[in-house]
């Protein structure tokens, strides 16, 4: 029995939806996506309520470097995401200003801190974080429009 024109067009439409949904998913998962940031820990670089663009390629190819601003799964609550700056990487000796001692960052780990040192819960509290929890690198502030622009590497950049 031949397919009726209606069944055929429904089938084509369904395949189109599956295809575009998959392309969208792969783009957001492996290339770049939008993140809505809340909380004061990255001020003045990123303020609460900002929407930023992040890319996943640097994380996938192990190209994250010191000073990058990253999105990371929270080590204590993996369903939540945190936005911090990479302060030290494996092999580095980093001074913890909260506990006043040095930590040697282990293989495969990073040390994350917020730019707002007085108001950020980060590696100074929960220690170094495995690289495997990183999700993306923030490269662009999208919203609000008057502060929109690429994210510099320097901490002190104020808008």
């Amino acid at each position: 029995m031949a397919a009726t024109p209606l069944a055929q067009s429904l089938r084509t439409a369904l395949l189109r939806v599956v295809q575009s949904g998959s392309i969208l998913y792969c783009t957001l998962e492996f290339v770049a996506d939008f993140v809505f940031c809340s909380g004061p820990s990255m001020e003045p670089t990123i303020k609460s309520g900002d929407v930023v663009l992040t890319e996943h390629i640097s994380v996938i190819f192990n190209k994250i470097r010191k000073r990058d601003v990253v999105i990371c799964k929270s080590p204590k609550s993996p369903k939540d995401y945190i936005c911090k700056r990479v302060i030290a990487m494996e092999g580095d000796n980093v001074y913890n200003t909260e506990s006043n001692n040095f930590t040697n960052v282990r293989r495969g780990h990073v040390w994350l801190e917020g730019d707002n040192k007085d108001n950020s819960s980060d590696s100074r509290n929960y220690g170094q974080v495995p690289y495997g929890l990183l999700r993306g690198r923030v490269f662009f502030v999208l919203w609000p429009l008057y502060r929109a622009g690429p994210l510099g590497l320097d901490t002190e950049k104020s808008f």
């Binding site: 192990n62 282990r106 293989r107 495969g108 780990h109 495995p130 690289y131 495997g132 990183l134």
Partner: peptide
């Protein structure tokens, strides 16, 4: 299965 904490690859 899990990502090694020592080596993300």
């Amino acid at each position: 299965s899990l990502v090694s904490p020592f080596n993300p690859s």
